[in-house]
Design a protein around this nucleic acid. Sequence first.
DNA 1: TTGTAAGCGTTATCAT
DNA 2: ATGATAACGCTTACAA
Lengths: 349, 349
Amino acid sequence: MPKKRVTINDIAKAAGVSKTTVSRYINGRKDLMGEQARERIRAAIEMTNYVPSDIASNLKKHTTNLIGLTVADITSPFSSALISGVSNYLEPLGYTLLMADTSDNPEKEIRSLKSLLAKGVSGLLVNTASYSNDFLIQTECSGTPIVLCDRYVRNHTFDIVTSNSPECFAKLIAHTKAQGYTRPLFFVQEWENNSTRMRLRDAFIHSVQEIYGYDPSSDVFTLRPGSVDAQSCLRRALSSQKHQLPIAIGCNSITTVRVYHAIRALGLSIPQDIGLCGPEDWDWANELNWPFMIEPNVTTVKIPAVQMGIHASRRLVEKIEQPDQSPQEILLPCELCIRDSTLRKIKPL
Amino acid sequence: MPKKRVTINDIAKAAGVSKTTVSRYINGRKDLMGEQARERIRAAIEMTNYVPSDIASNLKKHTTNLIGLTVADITSPFSSALISGVSNYLEPLGYTLLMADTSDNPEKEIRSLKSLLAKGVSGLLVNTASYSNDFLIQTECSGTPIVLCDRYVRNHTFDIVTSNSPECFAKLIAHTKAQGYTRPLFFVQEWENNSTRMRLRDAFIHSVQEIYGYDPSSDVFTLRPGSVDAQSCLRRALSSQKHQLPIAIGCNSITTVRVYHAIRALGLSIPQDIGLCGPEDWDWANELNWPFMIEPNVTTVKIPAVQMGIHASRRLVEKIEQPDQSPQEILLPCELCIRDSTLRKIKPL
DNA sequence: TTGTAAGCGTTATCAT
DNA sequence: ATGATAACGCTTACAA
């Protein structure tokens, strides 16, 4: 037998005051009542375990404290970090997180977005699954506050928080050259609908062109699930480079680790036979982080994923509380973490 | 210029019918009205881009399709896996996930729970931060459907989905003995308020007693943040075991990895000088999983975290749709994955 | 310092 | 087949 829900009326009755007073109490205007009233309300709430209904409150106030978040791939460490940042920033502000995983599927993203919208979210944080995204553009145009996380959407200027990883990639490329490597190889996943991978791929090509002085386009390997795997790419790359000293660069954690396994499988040693480096998603909990598990530890570009969650949330709350702001592009700095996997010479100071 | 929200009244007026009829239309009872009424309502909705308010509807209906989930530590791989299972199971059923991280903080858990309750969640999935948890007990008693994930709550029988990892630990201990290890060491974190760690600790003591024939209580090391670290524990353990062959067992991923780093720091080699093993959280995405990054690969008890999310969700939905069921305890099987870190002898078939 | 009363946008209960 | 009307639990002028 489900007990009847405790309402503001019950509290009012129990405390011998009016709903109004209880409402004031709930909303922090505890100064607007007498000492005894306050105390009796407190007691009544405690006794009955009363929890005010946000639903009723929202209906009246025409606003919710729900924030929607969609992530492209919840199984990636990047997402965990992002969620962690978002969740911890939002909680003390009284917002509740509505989360949806889109499994990198544009249609699922639209469904999720619609569902979040129907729930009355007062703003949206989107780590989008598609670079071409008319639905999101429409949604933004119809007035919903939106902040993108990490990934851009084509043909529209959104508020976005992302990282300057491409810039940091340039430093990384320079570092590999300084260490005596002569042939950077870039391993990326399907990038056609993913701005982050696009940016990194471009950064790779431009930086190598500038620093090494040749066009490395033929050394970009796109791993495709089930068909093009890291090991065969690596084998192919190496066979065409008899007298070169290669260094493998991944476009994200997963790619880099795949290449690592491929390197092991081919029996090559790091950093002598080949260098290894790539981005690293976690800016927390280094304990479980793969660059530190691998021997030698892996040189990475550290992506500030938690910070991205925090900044995106902050910006979103800003937009919610004060609409009609022009879009901002917030670029968070990445850190180049040089470790043994690329150190053939002496460690720089 | 905030656009005025289109309501059911507007549609009723525009279509020249009553709210009731429009409500019927919205709720799929399109048979309960005349052909023309139906058509005019359809047209009105299309014209105005009307979206019914879930909030108002929920207030009236006393029900939502919101499911609340609290996780004790969102930064752990276990949580990612759990969330992934929950989220993927619930999405196609039309439920929306409300998630909160409690940072292993009992007070924060209560706040989060209250917040979720206030949102009108129709059920709660709880990976609790506290074994002593009166608030949760009260909440359950007042009628909210709850299913615990992985961790028990003391003094109350909840529905729970967890794993049989203690049982699997017994197999693990037997395995270590068969491999010639003579001194199992158990490394655990603060376990006083955490049923999973308690169960594992007990399982360790009982199994060693049974299989090795002595009481290993003094070989249980509780790592405390900032004060008791893995390396000093390990050093202490080793100094008192001159002619023994130790094997280190972690109580979870983090602990095991910490011990791994401690072993490296002391310059010991695995599995010759010391064995290493422990639970492993991810039952997906092995690519980034630490047991495969470490050389030699680490023997683990694989925790079915994704499956836990799925089963817990399934059970919760069952309880929501059909209340008044007696609590079930669902124990998911774990897999013992023997790898090189504990193999001193020949690999068993 | 406290209360009254009118809604918020729906759905449910009766009617007709 | 359709409608009037009363809730749902809360907030907010406006009074007192």
